[in-house]
Amino acid sequence: MEKITKDRLDEVLKNPPPENGRYIRVGMSSCGVAAGAAEVFALLRSEVEKRKLAVPVVPCGCSGGCHSEPLVEVCVDGLPSVTYGKVNAEIAMRIIEEHVRDKRLVQDYIVDAPMKRAVAL
């Protein structure tokens, strides 16, 4: 592993790395996993690979909306980022085909997760 030095940390402060503009994040804490996030994550990953879509599928922790897990946040070019709640295999497929491929948001599953409302300081 590359060492993290003081210079490296200074550089991050001076030139913050750009926020990655494209991602599919899956809440993979205990609450998410208990609700089936691991299967959703695996499915999204394999579909993205199979279709050679240029969007990384990454795990993240719980943003607090445990009642709507599995939560999947999608940020792709040309659309504002939104979060889908209670995602299962079927909705995950629709996210890939409708949202990521056709650039049309999926109806009826978007939750405005607390994270989105939070004033992150």
Partner: peptide
């Protein structure tokens, strides 16, 4: 795009 949400908090 107009989209129906499940929950807006």
């Amino acid at each position: 795009q107009v989209v129906r949400a499940a929950d807006l908090g």
